[in-house]
Design a protein around this nucleic acid. Sequence first.
DNA 1: TAAAAAGTGTAACAACTATTACACCTTATC
DNA 2: GATAAGGTGTAATAGTTGTTACACTTTTTA
Lengths: 221, 221
Amino acid sequence: MFEILGSSPLFNGLESHQINTLIAKCPHQVKSFTKNEVLAYSGQVVDKAMIILTGKLQGEMIDLAGSSLKIEDLNAPQMVAPAFLYGPQALFPVNLSAISDGTMLVIYKNDFTKLLTLDQRVLANFLNIISGKAQFLSRKITFLSFKTIKEKLAYFLLNILKSNTMIIPINHSQKEVAELFGVARPSLARIIGELELLEIISWERNQVVVLDLNALQSILK
Amino acid sequence: MFEILGSSPLFNGLESHQINTLIAKCPHQVKSFTKNEVLAYSGQVVDKAMIILTGKLQGEMIDLAGSSLKIEDLNAPQMVAPAFLYGPQALFPVNLSAISDGTMLVIYKNDFTKLLTLDQRVLANFLNIISGKAQFLSRKITFLSFKTIKEKLAYFLLNILKSNTMIIPINHSQKEVAELFGVARPSLARIIGELELLEIISWERNQVVVLDLNALQSILK
DNA sequence: TAAAAAGTGTAACAACTATTACACCTTATC
DNA sequence: GATAAGGTGTAATAGTTGTTACACTTTTTA
């Protein structure tokens, strides 16, 4: 377990034996979860810190019609909902469900607070984690503020396109990308078709080739 | 200055003289700003902590067409962009501009980090502040995930409607509410007109009266 | 008080997206 | 390799919102 935690952002910079010593001072438990299990519902009180040891979780915002706007995937050894452990309203913002079987380390809030005061490196790491979460949400808002699907798609592609190559690997189906955007699948397909007709991009099975970078950038004006 | 800081969330629970002692140990400066001045642009590096002493600022997300999706007002003695001081990418998420003249306390990041280690109460306060910011952004995303204007309006009204009275005081013009929603003003007015025609609400000058609570709730299914 | 500014109600039209449906293709799975 | 399951392209239609314009009212300012 301590090797896994060693690669966790929260314990970044600490040796296994140091983590061992810290955790020993701090009441905790290891809980297992199974695929498709719902671990917490939106609005539920967050009273414990959770760190994924193995497996994969998903934070999902279910709208009232039943379709879902996906927010974030959570892999080991990430911390779950770190930005919702403190603050005026410590409530889960999303439904937390398991994508696969796995285990996680559970530390109740009071014990976790003590953990933070025991080691300055852990504290600094935690500050970076929750700040990073806020920044993730902020970028999400930036993304959602793009009105049209064409704009969202251009922003999405240009954000991945960091290297010099014009080939973007896409590990998601159109259906998944549409969910990520919060739009209907055929609507996304229509826009992709338009951009292909204009020879701006070429959407292939596992990758997207950018044919006209200037045109793609000019979508965002 | 120390009386103002005493009512700041960051120094919550500390006496004026304790704040005085803390600040004295920590290099700082007081900077003044003028109305309409832009203090920071989106994407700029955050390298200093800023606490508003007097006046009013605004975090504003400018889209490329020039219209703006308003995010947040910042009043004294709030901290500016606390969640963007740490984390992997310490960059301003919005344009920061002054709504009125005012002054603020400026502490460079390294000095601020030292300040956090000097007093545990300040540290706890800071954790609550940045967690609260993340939670604010999360609620914003929840809000933006409502697709139609009617849903946004229902969610907005029902969220304010905490007390037993069916009268909601509104301190914003329709134009401001439309900006808050990120929609066009006439579009919002049209929806308000529809709900008034159905006798669900009555939108008056400075207040909204909810006439049919069940109907309003059923908009969110 | 008069003039200017801001806020509100409304309409016609254009633009964009969701919904639904179906054909076709690719990839798993037995 | 046959079948099922999932992914993709596309079209018709309906619904929602943005844009623009204008009349009218209320509030602010000179």
